[in-house]
C-alpha cells in the first residue's frame, strides 16, 4: 500500500522535475539570444536544416490536403446547392486549423525528431561536454540557434502549406469540377477575415513552432547518453509533440473562435 503510494509520488515528482528542467532550459536558450545575434550564420545554417529541408514534405502534403478538401467539400456542398462556397470551406479549414496543425505534426516528425537525435548524439558522444571544456556554453552555442530556427520556420511553413492547399483546392474545384472561378475567390475573400482567421492562424503556428522545437531540444538535451536513450528520446519527441499540438490546438481554438 505504502509502496504503491510512494511509487505514485515518485512518478509525480519525476514529472515535475522534468517540467522544471524543461523551463530552466528554455530560460537558458532565451538568454543565448544576444550572443546568437552576434553570429547570425549559426541561425542561418539551422534555418536551412529545419526549414528549407522541410519544404518538400510541406508543399506536397499541402497540395494533396487542399485537393482532398476540394473533392470532399464539393461532395457535401453540392447537395445543398452551395458548391460555390467551396473556396470558403477550403480556405477556412486550411487557414484556421489544418495549416497550422498538420504543418506542426509534419514538422515534429521531420525536423523535431532530427533535432532530438542530433542533440542526443552530441551528448552521447560527449561533444557537448567538449564544448563546455572549451568554455563554450553548449546551450547558447548549440540549442539557441536551433530554437529560433524552429520558431521562424514554423509560421512560414504553415503559411506555405495553407497557400499551396488553397491552390490545390482551387485546382480541383475550378479546374476539375467546374465551379465558377470568380465565385470561388469572391466568396472566399468575403468570408475569410484577416484579423479573425489569418492572424489567429499565424499565432497558432507560432505557438506550435515554439512547443515542438522546445520539446525536441529538451528531449535531446535530457536524453540518456546511450543509443537506446537517444532512440527513446526521439520517440518521446514525436509522441509528446503530437499530443501537445492537438491539445493546445483545442485550447487555442476555444480561446480564439469559441466566443
Amino acid at each position: 500500500m505504502l509502496d504503491s503510494l510512494a511509487r505514485l509520488g515518485r512518478v509525480g515528482l519525476a514529472i515535475l522535475a522534468s517540467l522544471g528542467r524543461a523551463h530552466l532550459l528554455l530560460v537558458g536558450i532565451l538568454r543565448g539570444l544576444p550572443s546568437m545575434l552576434v553570429r547570425p550564420r549559426l541561425l542561418l545554417a539551422q534555418i536551412y536544416g529545419v526549414g528549407v529541408l522541410s519544404l518538400l514534405i510541406i508543399v506536397v502534403s499541402g497540395l494533396f490536403v487542399g485537393m482532398v478538401l476540394g473533392l470532399q467539400g464539393y461532395y457535401v456542398l453540392s447537395q445543398f446547392g452551395a458548391a460555390e462556397s467551396l473556396g470558403v470551406m477550403v480556405a477556412a479549414s486550411l487557414v484556421r486549423e489544418l495549416g497550422p496543425v498538420v504543418t506542426a505534426l509534419l514538422f515534429a516528425g521531420r525536423a523535431g525528431s532530427a533535432l532530438t537525435a542530433e542533440i542526443g548524439l552530441m551528448k552521447a558522444t560527449e561533444q557537448l561536454s567538449g564544448l563546455e571544456m572549451m568554455a563554450v556554453d553548449p546551450v547558447k552555442r548549440v540549442l539557441t540557434p536551433r530554437f529560433f530556427a524552429g520558431l521562424i520556420s514554423m509560421p512560414l511553413l504553415a503559411a506555405l502549406f495553407s497557400a499551396i492547399g488553397v491552390i490545390g483546392g482551387w485546382f480541383v474545384g475550378v479546374g476539375l469540377l467546374g465551379i465558377d472561378d470568380g465565385a470561388f475567390w469572391g466568396q472566399m475573400q468575403n468570408k475569410i477575415d484577416f484579423d479573425e482567421d489569418l492572424v489567429n492562424g499565424v499565432i497558432k503556428s507560432l505557438v506550435f513552432g515554439l512547443v515542438v522545437t522546445w520539446i525536441a531540444l529538451y528531449e535531446g538535451y535530457d536524453a540518456t547518453p546511450t543509443s537506446a536513450g537517444v532512440s527513446r528520446a526521439t520517440t518521446r519527441t514525436v509522441v509528446q509533440s503530437a499530443l501537445a499540438i492537438l491539445g493546445l490546438d483545442f485550447i487555442l481554438t476555444a480561446l480564439m473562435f469559441g466566443g
Partner: peptide, 11 residues
C-alpha cells in the same frame, strides 16, 4: 505565401 493569404484569400 503569407502575402497571398492576406491579399487573395482574406478580406
Amino acid at each position: 505565401a503569407l502575402f497571398f493569404l492576406a491579399m487573395r484569400v482574406s478580406n
